[in-house]
Amino acid sequence: MKKQDSSPRKLRLPHLTAGRIASIAASLLVLALLVGLGIYLNAPKPGDIPTSTSQMIFAVARVNDVLMDNAQADDWSEGRRLGTQLLELEICSGEHKGEFLEAYNYLNAYTNLDAKENTRLIVQLGYDDSGALYVVNIFNYDRWQVVGAFVLVFALVMVLVGGWKGVKALLGLLFTLACVWFLLLPMMLQGVPPIPATVAIIALTSAASLLLLDGPTLKTLCATLGCVGGVAVAGISAAVVGTLTPLNGFNTENAEALVLRAADGGLEISGLLVCGILISSMGAVMDVAMAIASSLHELHTHNPELSPLGLFRSGMNIGRDAMGTMANTLILAFAGSSLNTLLLFQVYDYPIMQLLNSDLMSLELLQGVAGSMGIILTVPIVAALSGYIMGRKRKQN
């Protein structure tokens, strides 16, 4: 019977080979280039005029006292209190922190910020003709403390359950959000064609997220190529159907407001519909791609003699189980985002011909079906790539 070694184990650091050092250096170089590009795209340009919204003054305010309250519960609004309040507010942020102001708060069924003592609100501040500070508008509740705590709980759960891979997944998510906000959107606003820009960002963020999770492995390569291929299928199918119907970015929400901005900065609105479908389908497609690539990698590891055709067949069998649930998830997500409008269609008993040909229903169907098409065709793409690449490695060995 072997004696167990009771000495404390030393933490083993990863061995830094020349290849690993080169990979780290290349990653840092790419990251530095992306940061530089983001700074350039977001820097103010000569001749830029600040928007009226950017010059508004918002602050967090705490209700110090409710000076008057005639609001009463109303039946038709499901018990929401309707009426008027006069609030004494203490400004809690900004250059006017510590000042006290009075403001009327008008409660109706839709903008119903029912305030009590110590309620925290977001208010818009302004100056009257004499230069005195006053509350222009009570904008909303200060929700960020609760929302921020919920985000922290989500991150903690991901780390506790996923361990080191959970940390990597969080870093990948942050990288994706940063690329969309600081790279993709500014590129669109400066006139870069939106569809190629979106495809480039999707390829970049998919590769970065999967590399963070598993490093430069064969399954990462297969999953990344499959993800880009599946998203491309979703975009191409949406573009084809949108051209035939026709449907484009001008049919989407807030297109009218964007038209004014497009005239100044070269924003191409017509391609925004396809871009939205590419971005929204990316997560589900990435999930399917990595699931199949990871499964086939495990099969290849435990049975290196599996042929490319055998790996492909296994990938198809695995993918058939995954694609059904993922397609349902994507279509139901699009339907859930328009639940209120769908209820109105039922309330007013729209004729089926008008319903099916409305912009909203056509857009929802196009987004859901195009995204699901991308998920479905991701399965054979990843299965074929994994079978060829991993099976080819078997032959070489």
Rank of each mutant, 00 (worst) to 15 (best):
L41K: 03
A43Q: 12
D48R: 03
D48V: 02
P50T: 11
T51F: 12
T51D: 12
I57M: 08
F58A: 06
A59Q: 04
A59H: 05
A59P: 04
R62N: 13
R62Q: 12
V63G: 06
V63E: 06
V63H: 07
V63R: 07
N64E: 15
M68I: 01
N70P: 08
A71I: 03
D74W: 04
D75Y: 12
S77K: 05
E78Y: 15
E78V: 12
E78D: 15
G79P: 00
G79Y: 04
G79A: 10
L82C: 09
L82W: 09
L82I: 15
Q85F: 06
Q85P: 12
L86A: 13
E88W: 01
E90M: 07
E90F: 01
I91V: 11
I91S: 10
I91G: 10
C92I: 07
E95I: 09
K97W: 00
E99H: 08
E99W: 02
L101R: 09
L101K: 03
E102P: 00
Y104H: 12
L107G: 08
N108C: 10
A109E: 11
Y110C: 03
L113N: 04
L113E: 00
A115P: 05
A115R: 06
A115V: 08
A115Q: 06
K116D: 14
E117N: 07
N118E: 14
T119K: 08
T119E: 05
T119N: 06
I122R: 05
V123Y: 01
S130M: 08
A132L: 07
A132N: 14
